[in-house]
Simulated assay, not measured.
Amino acid sequence: MGSFKGQRLQADILKALTIIFQREFLNSRYIKTLTIHEVRLTSDKRIAKIFYSTYDVNAKLENVEAEINKHLKYIKKMLAQKISARIMPEIIFVYDTALDNANRIEKLLKGDQ
């Protein structure tokens, strides 16, 4: 996303989702533990991929994804109230494996297997 408006919208979505997860999901098992790493909008701004991880080391990815999907409509509604976009992009949550990969590489380099 090269345009200034696109970059601004990506930043707004990231900020808004972080606030939503912290304030609206206090009783959630997994959503309150999510960290948004990056938001990528398509060039037409209709789809936003949300790259996330969780700091709950005991969380199983399928349980986290199930909880996200369970609350997806509510997350979208809250996001639409917090950002100013002509068209609300469809949001797709994608687990970010970069941290897992970095940790695995670090273990290999240290000789821990």
Rank of each mutant, 00 (worst) to 15 (best):
I87M: 09
D12P: 06
K60C: 14
E67N: 07
V64H: 09
S28Q: 05
M1N: 08
L79G: 00
A98R: 15
R40P: 00
I13Y: 00
E24I: 01
E90Q: 04
A85C: 11
I19P: 03
K77I: 02
R104L: 14
T18K: 09
Q7G: 13
Q22L: 11
L61I: 12
L61F: 05
I36D: 06
L72A: 11
K49P: 02
L41I: 01
Y74K: 13
I31W: 03
N27R: 07
K60R: 14
T54H: 09
Q113S: 14
I68Y: 03
L79Q: 00
S43V: 09
L41N: 01
N27I: 07
K15C: 09
I36F: 04
L99W: 05
R8A: 02
E67D: 10
A48N: 03
T42R: 06
D44K: 04
I87E: 09
E24Y: 01
A16G: 02
E65Y: 08
A85N: 09
I105M: 14
D100P: 00
E62Y: 14
S28K: 00
R86H: 12
K107G: 12
F25H: 06
Y55W: 14
Q10D: 06
A66D: 13
K32P: 03
I20N: 02
S84V: 11
R8N: 10
I105F: 12
L61V: 06
V57E: 15
L41C: 08
A11G: 12
D100E: 10
R46S: 08
I68L: 10
D56G: 05
F25C: 09
I13W: 07
I31A: 05
H37L: 02
I50S: 02
A85L: 10
L72M: 08
L99T: 06
D112L: 11
I83K: 01
M78G: 04
Q22H: 13
D12I: 04
